[in-house]
Computed example of a mutant assay.
Amino acid sequence: MELSQQVTTVTAPAQQGLITQFQYNLSVDTLTSIQTFICMLGLITNIINIKTFLAMRAFDDGVTLTFLLLSVSDLFVCFVSTYICVSAFLISQESRWLSKLNSPKSIIHQEQLNGPFFPVEPTYIGIFGHNMFQIFNLITILLTIYLAVARCLCVMYPLKFRNIITVRKTLLVSTIFFLTSLGIRLPLITHSGILLKFDPRINATRYRLWVHPNRETIKDVLWISVDSPVCVGAQVTLSVCIVFMVKVLRAAVKFRLKASVTNNSKLDSNKSNEKLSTKETRIVKQLVLVSTIFIICNTPKILTFLAATIEPGFDLGGRYQNFYQVSVSATVLFDTLNSSVNMFVYYFYNSKFKSIFNNKSETTGSH
Rank of each mutant, 00 (worst) to 15 (best):
residue 162 R to D: 12
residue 102 N to L: 12
residue 140 T to K: 03
residue 165 I to R: 00
residue 128 F to Q: 10
residue 249 L to H: 04
residue 360 K to H: 15
residue 270 N to T: 14
residue 216 E to R: 02
residue 31 L to G: 06
residue 286 Q to W: 08
residue 312 P to W: 08
residue 107 I to F: 09
residue 283 I to D: 08
residue 244 F to A: 06
residue 280 E to H: 08
residue 329 S to E: 10
residue 183 G to M: 02
residue 69 L to D: 02
residue 326 V to H: 03
residue 343 M to G: 09
residue 341 V to A: 09
residue 136 F to I: 05
residue 326 V to L: 06
residue 267 L to T: 14
residue 337 L to S: 08
residue 107 I to K: 09
residue 235 Q to L: 09
residue 45 T to Q: 01
residue 203 N to Y: 04
residue 360 K to C: 12
residue 314 F to H: 04
residue 367 H to A: 11
residue 119 P to H: 04
residue 66 T to C: 12
residue 209 L to R: 00
residue 86 V to G: 00
residue 269 S to W: 06
residue 265 S to C: 11
residue 50 I to V: 11
residue 289 L to M: 14
residue 331 T to I: 11
residue 209 L to D: 03
residue 136 F to T: 10
residue 362 E to N: 14
residue 187 P to R: 00
residue 323 F to V: 13
residue 216 E to I: 10
residue 14 A to H: 04
residue 108 I to N: 02
residue 95 S to I: 07
residue 348 F to H: 11
residue 286 Q to A: 12
residue 108 I to C: 04
residue 170 T to C: 06
residue 303 L to H: 05
residue 167 V to S: 03
residue 121 E to C: 09
residue 353 F to G: 05
residue 169 K to A: 11
residue 123 T to L: 07
residue 72 V to M: 07
residue 308 A to K: 09
residue 138 L to T: 15
residue 274 E to H: 13
residue 37 F to T: 13
residue 219 K to L: 11
residue 304 T to I: 13
residue 152 C to D: 05
residue 267 L to I: 12
residue 345 V to I: 15
residue 334 F to V: 13
residue 292 T to C: 12
residue 91 I to V: 15
residue 261 V to F: 07
residue 330 A to S: 15
residue 4 S to W: 05
residue 15 Q to N: 09
residue 233 G to H: 03
residue 61 D to Y: 00
residue 71 S to G: 04
residue 244 F to M: 06
residue 158 P to M: 01
residue 274 E to I: 12
residue 137 N to A: 12
residue 68 L to Q: 01
residue 349 Y to I: 10
residue 345 V to A: 09
residue 95 S to T: 15
residue 305 F to C: 08
residue 297 C to F: 05
residue 150 A to E: 00
residue 36 T to W: 02
residue 330 A to T: 15
